[in-house]
Design a binder for these strands. Structure first.
Lengths: 196, 196
DNA sequence: TTAGTTACTTTACACTGTGTCAATTGACAC
DNA sequence: GTGTCAATTGACACAGTGTAAAGTAACTAA
């Protein structure tokens, strides 16, 4: 019955999620670990997900469901001014990132070995870039953007300030709190992008 | 004779360097590839370097010899003012990085699996951080630093702007040239760090 | 001349983790 | 009962790292 099939599928996804959120390094979570946690055989996992990459990708969709990514990241669109929107978006994204970090990290590690994982990761990053671009355009329209910046370059800069490795460095190398990451990035972004 | 031993050792290092500089992904370079390129057996490589991590670490030292890392990165110290020093350091580091990128990338990939590689990488990044700190202190002494920034936070920000993932994103995701990475980072750094 | 050392070779194997395959079991459905 | 479907067990291929042992060729030193 397809009902039972979906139950096991969910169990696998939930176990994967749980294990990835716990471990700092994505590679620590092996297919056998996932199977063990879900209480099924390793081979049963392959019955539902042909490869590790497929499983990881499926987990990212599950994540978005759980945390309502769409809702969170669309909210900044309502902001009255470009500057408020910039601040809101940084807060929304850097507020969401810690929740999905374990899974995203596993995807990043997988990129070099698996094209499907790379594609899935790049697609997600492209979404972020699009949001950055929209924000920059809002600033441009209000004539708030630094004169020397094209919208493209400004988008690149904001996108990189909001990239996962940047956040990782602040968070784990510099020891900033999640709140500090948000506030300081808001300040820096305004200093770089806005007219004085 | 230790003379022959050193010759082979050099051959291994040079082959590794060559292969890492060619390939975009560090993992593509296997121990057997290195041995083949050096014209020796795979086991002979292990005679000189007990593990892959040891070999990679040794290669980074070889790199510094070849490109005189010390000389390059010390030059900015001569700059007359803090601002010139900031600019000079960004130029020196982002000018050097492309030369060593292949090897550094391989080390980064290795970090998650090997503690020795992680340590070696972290040490190198710490050197960069120290240079950032000295630069920030120079700005502070000249009262050029933004009032709201402590030296520590300012150092963190500059360090992250000069991190390898940041450069990677500009270079490969955004498609900036090496020159653009330097100039735009100089501009951004000044906007974030300096008083208006 | 012979014995020892050194650098390296060849062959074989252990180990880890992914992914495949085939035969089997247990449950429920018509 | 016969079919089907989820899952199980056990075996295996494959890649890459690292270990181990026996052998070779060349040079060194009594």
């Amino acid at each position: 019955m397809s009902r039972e099939k979906n139950e096991t599928r969910q169990k696998i996804l939930d176990s994967t999620l749980k294990l990835l959120e716990k471990s700092s390094v994505g590679k620590e979570v092996r297919m056998s670990d996932i199977a063990k946690d879900a209480g099924i055989s390793r081979q049963a996992v392959y019955l539902h997900f042909p490869t590790r990459a497929d499983l990881l990708i499926a987990v990212t969709y599950r994540l978005d469901e759980i945390y309502d990514a769409a809702g969170r990241l669309v909210k900044p669109t309502n902001a009255k001014t470009g500057i408020l929107r910039l601040e809101a978006y940084i807060e929304a994204w850097f507020g969401y990132l810690p929740l999905i970090y374990g899974v995203v990290k596993a995807m990043m590690d997988m990129r070099d070995q698996d094209d499907a994982a790379k594609e899935a990761y790049d697609l997600r990053m492209q979404h972020i870039r699009n949001a950055c671009e929209t924000t920059i355009l809002a600033l441009k329209n209000e004539d708030q953007l630094q004169a020397h910046l094209t919208t493209e370059v400004a988008t690149d800069i904001l996108w990189t300030m909001l990239s996962i490795p940047t956040w990782e460095q602040y968070r784990f190398q510099c020891g900033w709190t999640a709140q500090e990451c948000i506030q300081r990035t808001q300040t820096s972004a305004k200093a770089v992008l806005l007219k004085p």
